[in-house]
Amino acid sequence: MTERFQNYVREPAKRVFAAEMRDARHSFRVGDDEKSPTYLLLPTGERCNRVFIVGSLTQKERVGEQNSMYRARVADPSGTFFITAGSYQPEAMQQVARIEPPAFVAVVGKPNAYETPDGKVLISIRAETVTPVDRDIRDLWVLDAADATLDRIDAFGDSQDAETARAEYNPNLASYKKMVYDALTAIRQ
Rank of each mutant, 00 (worst) to 15 (best):
T2N: 13
Q6N: 11
N7R: 09
P12L: 05
K14W: 09
R15S: 11
F17M: 05
A18K: 03
A19S: 15
A19H: 03
E20W: 08
R25S: 10
G31R: 07
G31D: 11
K35G: 10
L40Y: 02
L40S: 02
L41H: 00
L41M: 09
L41C: 06
L42N: 00
T44K: 00
G45I: 04
C48I: 11
C48T: 15
V54L: 04
V54D: 00
L57N: 05
Q59T: 07
R62P: 00
R71K: 15
R73T: 13
P77N: 14
G79L: 07
F81E: 06
S87P: 04
E91N: 10
M93H: 04
Q94L: 15
R98S: 13
F104A: 07
A106I: 06
V107C: 03
G109W: 01
G109Y: 01
P111K: 06
N112Q: 13
N112L: 11
A113P: 06
A113V: 13
Y114N: 14
G119L: 11
G119E: 14
I125H: 02
A127F: 01
A127K: 02
T129K: 04
T129Q: 07
V130I: 12
P132M: 11
P132A: 11
P132Y: 04
D134W: 07
D134L: 07
D136V: 12
I137L: 07
V142Y: 00
L143V: 15
L143R: 14
A146Q: 03
A148T: 14
T149S: 04
L150S: 05
R152Y: 02
D154Q: 12
D158S: 15
D158V: 05
Q160L: 14
A162L: 06
A162R: 00
A165L: 10
E168V: 15
N170D: 15
A174V: 09
K178E: 13
Y181Q: 15
Y181E: 15
D182A: 12
A183I: 12
L184K: 08
T185F: 10
